[in-house]
Amino acid sequence: MLRPPRGVLVGGLITSIYALTVLLTTIPYPGKIGVNYNTLGTDWMVFYGAIRSVLDGHASLIFDAERFTDFLNAAFAGWLSKPLDLRPWAYPPSFLLLLLPFAPLGFFASYVAFQLATAGLLAVALRFRADDRATSEVLLAIVLLCPAAFINVIDGQAVFLVAALIVGGLRLLESRPVLGGLILGLLTFKPQFCILVPLALIAAGQWRAFWAAGLSALALAAASGAIFGWELWLRWFPLMVENLTGSNTKWIEVGRIWGNSVYTCAMLLGAPQGLASGLQLLAALFAAASVVIAFRSQLGVREKMAVFLAATLLAAPHSGPYDQELLMLAAVLWLTVLDAPRPPLWCWTLALLIWLVPLVSPPVLIPVSRPAPLLTVALIVLVLHRRPVLVHNASQ
């Protein structure tokens, strides 16, 4: 069972209490403590506003960023402490399908229900064998009490669901590969977090899981097209290309520049846009190579999960402070598999730095977090450093 040094434990508890305090004071006193989040659930307003717009016959609204933002400011004026800045919908229509069960609940009830449901799914995914229940409990406590988790709740984001799908899917690859693939295919609801899935499955020789993941992704897309109309997909694809190529300057200003990606941090450190895009590409290539190495090796399931979680965050062209939950989970998984009975202090110090990153985010407001992607690279290298000899035959 993991037992952090006293100083690390105290530091973690203090910052966790601070993050909880920010959450509790965001509605009555937004910005009085920590970053001004305006109110609770501002990202959930985008999710809930999108599914309600589509169901109410105003699907075209979600692809007009200015009109959609005006709609959100009018619909949630009673919740907001000030009007929202530009809030575009940038997700595929398949995400709407996952939001559909929450649409009838109303804004606040659906916001709470989504956070509870996705946290519950993550808890289920993190349940290891009965003889290793203590590790599962420690893992769950850390990922639900870390600052990234509180920021996820404050914003009303979906990182609990992303983490649950990654952990659940990867854990099932050996015992139930088809089910594991089906789960991993659902990650396409946030495309930036599914780009490494095919590489991992091919590297592992998990062809049944590979085809199952593709089938799952296609089924999710087909169901959303059948329910909401294919016009949404025809409108979303050009928008996605525009965002990825950087030709959408508004998305850079209101989306990517407020994130934690390699691109964002490089831009904020003074790199021109072309160099920042190149560094993001190099980070993605490094992440892809790391996943291939890990899944071609005889590393254990937890090490492979750790590499995949960290690499997924590093490769993502856009991520937020709440998405650091993936890196925190990767760090704890790494700590659980170190050879030493008690990991040395420097290992815990690295994990504590990863724990703290969301509290000094976003980098556009707090410069100290701009080198944070280096922590992700360091963690990937440390996990891979333990790797045994590569498997030369997928049947071995």
Rank of each mutant, 00 (worst) to 15 (best):
R370I: 06
V112H: 06
A74T: 11
A316F: 07
G278V: 03
V357K: 01
P177S: 08
Q206Y: 05
G181Y: 02
A203F: 09
Q157T: 00
A74F: 07
L232V: 11
A103F: 12
L2E: 00
L140R: 06
L140H: 02
P92I: 04
A213Q: 03
W79F: 09
M1C: 03
P104S: 06
A283T: 09
F108Q: 13
P28V: 07
Y37K: 06
A223M: 11
S110N: 07
A65K: 14
P198H: 01
L375F: 13
A315E: 14
S277K: 09
A65T: 11
G168Y: 06
L345M: 15
A213N: 12
M45D: 14
V254H: 10
S361Y: 10
L282D: 03
A158N: 15
L374I: 13
A130G: 05
V159A: 02
A330V: 05
A266H: 08
G57F: 14
R6V: 06
M1Y: 10
Q396A: 05
V307I: 10
L23A: 14
L379E: 02
R67L: 13
R256E: 08
T245D: 10
F47Y: 15
A316E: 02
A219F: 04
Y263L: 14
V178D: 07
T42L: 00
L121W: 09
L98F: 15
L327Y: 02
P191T: 00
F228T: 15
A222C: 13
L72N: 01
T25H: 03
V35F: 15
A287V: 09
T376N: 14
A340D: 15
I227P: 04
I151M: 02
V35A: 01
L275C: 04
L285N: 00
L365C: 10
S247M: 04
G120H: 07
L244T: 08
V46M: 08
I183Q: 13
A103L: 13
G214H: 02
I252L: 15
L55Y: 11
I154M: 10
F71Y: 15
G106M: 13
A222W: 02
L313T: 06
Q396V: 09
A311F: 04
L24W: 13
A50V: 04
W44Q: 05
L390D: 00
S290F: 08
G229Y: 01
L327F: 04
V8S: 01
A90K: 00
F237Q: 05
F102V: 10
L356S: 03
L299A: 06
A74R: 14
F128T: 06
D64Q: 10
G34A: 11
L314N: 01
L350M: 06
